[in-house]
Structures are given as structure tokens and as C-alpha cells.
């Protein structure tokens, strides 16, 4: 009773007074929150330039209103279909065809009978994750070079024709995704391995009693255990479906494979920053952001309905 009245009293203290009594905490909080407001929320407000026409010299707050002109231009242009198609192909493969790989890898690591093998494999597959995108793309180029690349040297040795990997949009996809698996497998698996370590040992004991073999234990115990994590990560990925990280694509891009490598991110960078077409490029990225947000909300809703798991 006493504590209740105390807390009510506390709440009734004027806001300013409570704030002042916490000035030290606010002093600690300020630098980061100021940086957040300035570098995240001011640009968020800045997306209004998607509805303006900004000349190359003007600031974020200048320009003249043009309504939905930029969006109309976007939907009318031929470019729209190309960059959206390319973006969606890349993210579809990445999120819906490749996502089981780290899970399978984590299951194998978790079920390996030898500690040394487990350790070696986990350590070795995580290493490529430390390499920068520039280094990874340079390695791809070195391996796939038409004359001097290892792949072509070996192909030639085995009596095949050499392949000009960089020169054909078709070859962009295998190079992009295989290198993606190479750098991402170990690091994406870490989170599932962590989830697997929480498997209930009683369940395993009981399964052993019933004579379940390893494959059955994986199927009936391990997979249900990590299901919540899997669903959660899938929801989080949904929002990224339309916003593929453009760094690697931009680095792999050349004049010959442009028809496959021009995606939303690379287009916004080149048209927006290099050509200074600010408001149109902002309209493009605003449009993708809104679709991304809608996708997160929808998938969050679906997951909530079917499995009680959700982000918010």
C-alpha cells in the first residue's frame, strides 16, 4: 500500500522535475540521440524532396514542389521494369532459395560427432565473412579472368573452351550467389547454432530411449527447436526483399553485364549522386522503402496468425 502511494506520488511529480533529477542520465544519452535525430530523422524528413524538384546546387530544404511528378516519371520509364526485375530476381534467390543452406549447415555442425571437426568447419567457413566486399569481388575477378583466372586455366587444362565470365549477364548470377554462399554460410549459421544449443536434453534422452537415430532426432527435435528463430529471421528478411545491398553488385558491374546488374540501389547511386538527379532518385528509393515496410508488416501479421511469433 505504502509503495503504491509512493509510486503515485512519484508519477505526479512534474515532468520537468523528474527530468532534472535525471540530468546525469540525460547527459549520457544526449550525444547518441542527437546523432540519431540529426543523421537519421532529418534525412527521413528529407524524403519530401521526392515531391520536389531540386537543382544540383540546392540544399535539402530547397526546391520547388512538383507533387507526384517524380513518381509518374518512374512508372512511365522503361527503366522501372528492368531495375525492379533485377532487384527482385537477386533478392528472391538470396532469401527464398538460399536461406535453408545456413540452417542445414548449422544442423550438421550441431550434430557432428567430433568436436575438432565442428570447430575446424565453423572457424573456416566464418573466415570469408571477414573479407571486405572489395576483396571478395577482386578475388572473383582473379579466379574468373578470361586468360589468367584459375577457373579458366583448369577448364583449358581439361580440354574445354575458356569462358568470359565477366562479359555475359548470364554468368553474373552464379558468380554473385556462389561467392555469396562462400562469404555468408558460416556467419549466417552462427545464429542457428546458438538456437540449437538450447535443445532440451530431456527430449534427446527420451528420443534415445525410444531408439531414435540421428536423422530422426534432427527432424523431430532439432528442427522444431529452431523453428521460431527461422520464422523470425524470415520475417526480418521480408523487408529486405526489395532493397538488395548494392555494394557488391555495384563492384561487380561492368558495361557488358549491365542488363543483369542494374538494380535499384546501383541506379539510385549512379543517377542520384553521379548525375545529381536528386529528387527523382529519392522518389525511387522512397517507393522501394514503402514497399519494403509494407512487406515487413504483412509478413509479421502472417507469422503472428500462424505461429505466435512476431517482431512487434
Amino acid at each position: 500500500m505504502a509503495s503504491q502511494s509512493l509510486s503515485i506520488q512519484n508519477k505526479k511529480k512534474p515532468f520537468i522535475k523528474r527530468l532534472l533529477s535525471q540530468w546525469q542520465l540525460y547527459a549520457l544519452l544526449t550525444p547518441a540521440m542527437f546523432a540519431m535525430l540529426l543523421f537519421h530523422y532529418v534525412p527521413m524528413y528529407g524524403v519530401i524532396i521526392a515531391f520536389k524538384e531540386i537543382l544540383p546546387g540546392e540544399s535539402l530544404f530547397g526546391g520547388t514542389w512538383v507533387g507526384f511528378e517524380n513518381f509518374k516519371r518512374l512508372f512511365k520509364s522503361d527503366l522501372f521494369s528492368t531495375i525492379f526485375k533485377n532487384t527482385i530476381i537477386i533478392s528472391f534467390v538470396q532469401h527464398f532459395l538460399l536461406w535453408p543452406l545456413p540452417i542445414i549447415f548449422a544442423l550438421l555442425i550441431h550434430n557432428s560427432s567430433r568436436r575438432s571437426v565442428r570447430k575446424f568447419s565453423q572457424t573456416a567457413t566464418y573466415l570469408p565473412h571477414l573479407l571486405s566486399t572489395v576483396v571478395v569481388v577482386t578475388i572473383i575477378e582473379l579466379f574468373c579472368n578470361r586468360e589468367t583466372g584459375l577457373i579458366n586455366i583448369v577448364l583449358q587444362r581439361m580440354g574445354f573452351d575458356t569462358v568470359f565470365f565477366q562479359g555475359d549477364p548470364k554468368w553474373f548470377y552464379p558468380m554473385y550467389f556462389l561467392s555469396g554462399i562462400w562469404t555468408g554460410l558460416g556467419s549466417s549459421a552462427v545464429i542457428y547454432i546458438a538456437a540449437l544449443s538450447s535443445v532440451d536434453t530431456q527430449l534427446i534422452e527420451a528420443a534415445l530411449m525410444d531408439g531414435a537415430n540421428k536423422l530422426q532426432r534432427m527432424w523431430y527435435i532439432d528442427i522444431p527447436t529452431i523453428m521460431p528463430t527461422v520464422v523470425l529471421l524470415l520475417i526480418m528478411d521480408m523487408g529486405k526483399v526489395i532493397s538488395v545491398g548494392y555494394e557488391k553488385v555495384l563492384l561487380m558491374q561492368n558495361d557488358l553485364n549491365l542488363s543483369a546488374t542494374e538494380i535499384i540501389g546501383t541506379y539510385v547511386y549512379k543517377n542520384g549522386l553521379i548525375n545529381a538527379d536528386y529528387s527523382f532518385s529519392t522518389a525511387v528509393s522512397l517507393f522501394t522503402n514503402i514497399i519494403g515496410l509494407a512487406l515487413v508488416l504483412i509478413s509479421n501479421r502472417i507469422a503472428k496468425r500462424f505461429s505466435d511469433i512476431s517482431l512487434f
Binding site: 540519431m36 535525430l37 543523421f39 527521413m44 528529407g46 524532396i49 542520384g272 536528386y278 529519392t282 522503402n289
Partner: peptide, 19 residues
């Protein structure tokens, strides 16, 4: 809440650059 929102929505490259 502001921190979480900043993780899911951003102004994007061009407004940040202009800022």
C-alpha cells in the same frame, strides 16, 4: 521506439548526402 524505427526506415542515400 525512435531507435527501432530508425532500424526499419531510413531517409536513404540522397537525403543523407544532401544533409
Amino acid at each position: 521506439t525512435l531507435i527501432v524505427i530508425s532500424m526499419y526506415f531510413s531517409g536513404g542515400m540522397i537525403p543523407t548526402y544532401l544533409l
